[in-house]
């Protein structure tokens, strides 16, 4: 793995909220075909890091690189253009819109005069769901009629629109049952098989160890250790809690 240019790299990234140091000099690299887990206690700065990468927050200092090139991710649509797709912690979907509309939201296929190419979007959505082996009755179902697990599957499918290369998932299983969690983890593995770089944020160590290639620990906004997936529960837990 070493030596290749990473898809995404954070170099000495910091982010402050007034006096709160949410991120301090954080380094992180993600390569293609790799699931990197980001773990840490509540308030460790995981969501802040996800939002920096997604273009929702800008870093106070430090550099973000995509393909080794320094970039400024100033908004979610810039992130989309750079091939970065994100799933946020709080199940952000529009319940009034159907599956297709949610999957393509903000990146709709436009035809003449700004009109929607609905048929094409539906076909593509159906292909996408099939690809990820997501089972949903119809792509025209409004999201309010789907279960939490199905919604999360839609949100994950959504990340594949516009051929992203990096996917950031912030606690994608937090609101899900055991069975639904297992399905979502399968989808994540599918993303890796497709050649994407994935950042998986979680504080469930079992989930993380099941699917990730590498585990990075954040503590009080700082890097606090990097582990292979084979590391023991205790080692990782010690880094998370700081009980050295």
């Amino acid at each position: 793995m070493r030596g290749r240019t990473p898809l995404l790299a954070l170099r000495q990234v910091s982010r402050y909220f007034g006096a709160v140091e949410a991120l301090v000099d954080v380094d992180l690299e993600v390569h293609a075909h790799e699931v990197v887990a980001l773990v840490g206690d509540n308030g460790a700065g995981k969501s802040t890091l996800a939002k920096v990468v997604a273009g929702v927050l800008s870093p106070s200092s430090g550099q973000v690189e995509v393909d080794g090139e320094p970039v400024t991710i100033s908004s979610p649509s810039v992130a989309n253009q750079l091939g970065v797709a994100s799933v946020f912690q709080d199940l952000a979907v529009c319940e009034n819109l159907d599956v297709t509309a949610n999957v393509f939201l903000g990146q709709e296929l436009r035809g003449r005069a700004g009109l929607l190419r609905d048929g094409e979007m539906e076909t593509e959505t159906r292909a996408l769901l099939e690809h990820l082996t997501i089972r949903i009755p119809s792509v025209r179902t409004p999201l309010r009629h789907l279960s939490a697990g199905q919604r999360q599957a839609v949100v994950i499918a959504r990340t594949l629109i516009g051929q992203p290369r990096i996917v950031v998932l912030d606690e994608p299983t937090a609101a899900l049952s055991v069975a639904q969690t297992a399905e979502v983890l399968t989808h994540i593995q599918r993303l890796r098989e497709l050649g994407l770089g994935v950042i998986l944020i979680s504080h469930n160590l079992n989930d993380v160890r099941a699917v990730s290639d590498r585990i990075e620990v954040l503590r009080h906004g700082r890097n606090n250790g990097s582990f292979p997936a084979s590391a023991t529960h205790e080692e990782i837990l010690a880094a998370i809690t700081g009980a050295a």
Partner: peptide
């Protein structure tokens, strides 16, 4: 909120 995060 979701719309904003999606780039709308």
């Amino acid at each position: 909120h979701a719309a904003e995060l999606s780039g709308v």
